[in-house]
Simulated scan of single mutants.
Amino acid sequence: MNDAGRSPRHPRRRPRGAARVTTVTGALLSLFALLLALPAAASAATNGAGASPASVTTSRDHVTHPQLDWAGSTIPSHEGGGSHGGTVTPDATLTSGMDVSAYQGSVDWTTAWNNGARFAYVKATESTTYTNPDFTQQYDGSYDVGMIRGAYHFATPDTSGGAAQADYFVSHGGGWSGDGKTLPPMLDIEYNPYGAECYGLSQSGMVGWISAFVNEVHARTSRWATIYTTTDWWTTCTGNSSAFAGNDPLFVARYSSSAGTLPAGWGYYTFWQYADSGTFPGDQDYFNGAYDRLQALANG
């Protein structure tokens, strides 16, 4: 039988040394490719690119002075103002109130009530590492004198995801009950007191972070969060998104004789922080309506 065209019974093998070199070279190339990919992956995780904003986390929790971070603490240095000397001329009935944090310490709530304050927002948390040491005195004390009160969270979107911070907030004072005396939980989102104005997020990334926060608060409490911000910050850092106006009450900060232009989508403000000191301890606020409408907001 003719063996022409058959494969040899023992085909010629490559030397063992050559195979070993090829294997090592391939492994080194794979390792090199992995190292090249790491910076891009880290950047995507930090900025939220290609990932759900709720899952974005970093190992950097640089919250070093949370006792100095409160609703409006960053505004005078960015927008000027402060304790305004003008007179607010309301377009309709406004109800007076205030917001406080650990910066105020123990508050004399009886005097604040006697001077006309009818509601208060109290800082509860910041990031996922800080709780206000004066929260109980402030939150319960305002309630005890008859005020309608709520809790707020100072956001740091570069330290952890929106859902993670919402969970921490709700678990540390940011809940809600339908007792007629509890305002919706509030998200304080403003200029970064630790660095980049928009916390290193793109406008779409910031919108995603806020969405994750308010959606988680709603899932945990059944209430849509009040959003505290300024028109300038909102325009710069969210692209003036109108995505939240349909559900979330607006708490606008502007230290002037009027609330001015509002962020996109909101036809009116629910709360207005008009000064950082005055008649009451803490910041000076108005609810846009009579007291019975404030009660209606608390009741949901």
Rank of each mutant, 00 (worst) to 15 (best):
M1N: 03
R254A: 12
I148S: 01
D188R: 11
S52D: 15
V100I: 07
A4K: 05
T93C: 09
M1G: 05
T279F: 03
I75N: 05
A196Q: 09
T46N: 00
D276H: 04
W266D: 08
D158S: 11
V122P: 01
H172Q: 05
G205F: 10
Y274Q: 10
N114E: 14
P184S: 02
R60S: 14
H62W: 12
A163G: 05
T279H: 03
N114I: 07
G208C: 13
D285H: 02
F271M: 03
I148M: 03
A225K: 12
R12Q: 09
G72P: 08
D188K: 14
A264S: 15
R9Q: 06
G50T: 09
T279E: 02
T231L: 01
S83Q: 14
T22W: 13
N115G: 06
Y269Q: 05
V24I: 15
S242F: 14
I210R: 05
P281I: 03
A33S: 11
G26Y: 12
S52K: 13
G239M: 10
G282V: 12
M147P: 03
P76K: 06
G200R: 13
L187M: 15
A212S: 15
G173A: 02
W176F: 01
V63Y: 08
H84E: 15
G300V: 02
C198K: 09
G17S: 07
P11M: 09
A245F: 12
I148E: 00
K181Q: 07
V107H: 02
P66H: 07
W224Q: 06
W109E: 00
F119G: 00
P8D: 04
A259C: 06
G50N: 09
A124H: 04
P157F: 07
L29A: 15
A290L: 05
R60L: 14
G195E: 08
N132D: 15
V107T: 04
